[in-house]
Write a protein that binds this DNA or RNA. Structure first.
Lengths: 109, 109
DNA sequence: ACAACCTACAACCATCAGGTTGCATGTTGT
DNA sequence: ACAACATGCAACCTGATGGTTGTAGGTTGT
């Protein structure tokens, strides 16, 4: 794992470790939403929601495009799949434990 | 999503959002390690590592069993799979994004 | 018995995260 | 032109996080 990959993993998991951000992500995965439209859905200031979207964007989980005065956010499913890959790697480590035990057993005559 | 499920998701993603903790998790997924054995692997105090293990344990990613004076930690692959399920749910939202009518209604309060 | 070891937890400190308000800038509809 | 709207960013406050040291108690080997 390179240092950059670890930092990206940090950003991805951190972005997902907040209930509001996961909810925003669900919405923008379902379809484009402007930041202010998202903000109207939550009991917090516009700025707070804008910061959450920025965190998701920095992690690559959300992308934005400009349409006039609005910034339309949409979810990046590829980023979600990359998180799933990170989990797969962890599970592969676990599977390796089993095969190592198998090897030990195989070594016993 | 119930409140308890969201809190569990918070704990899981937060636990994974730290490089040292992910590294610890890899080690204990590969096989049992005592806390002090883990601590020797990192350039930080025993207490710091012990706290990282505690965070992983609270999230359910690691379990500990006592063996004499040692606490042996091992990784819980089921917890990792539950995180993968959370990601699957997000991806399912994305797959359903075309045939979404709920959001049109939800967007007009 | 006792020294060495392992763990757990408390207190403390610096930094970060999530929230607020306020302001500057660009866009739109009348 | 101009009022209303959408965004982005900075400053600020408070609580949580990640690290430290210190302390206390249970286990082990000699």
């Amino acid at each position: 794992m390179t240092d950059a990959e670890e930092k990206r993993a940090d950003a991805l998991f951190h972005a997902l470790a907040d209930r509001t951000r996961r909810d925003i992500l669900r919405r923008v995965l379902a379809g484009e939403h402007s930041v202010s439209a998202l903000a109207r859905s939550y009991d917090m200031s516009f700025a707070a929601v804008q910061k959450h979207v920025a965190v998701l964007e920095r992690a690559g989980l959300v992308s934005k495009r400009r349409s006039g005065r609005e910034a339309l956010a949409s979810g990046e499913v590829e980023a979600i799949r990359s998180v799933a890959s990170l989990l797969d790697e962890l599970e592969a480590v676990w599977r390796g434990r089993i095969s190592r035990i198998d090897d030990l057993l195989a070594d016993r005559p």
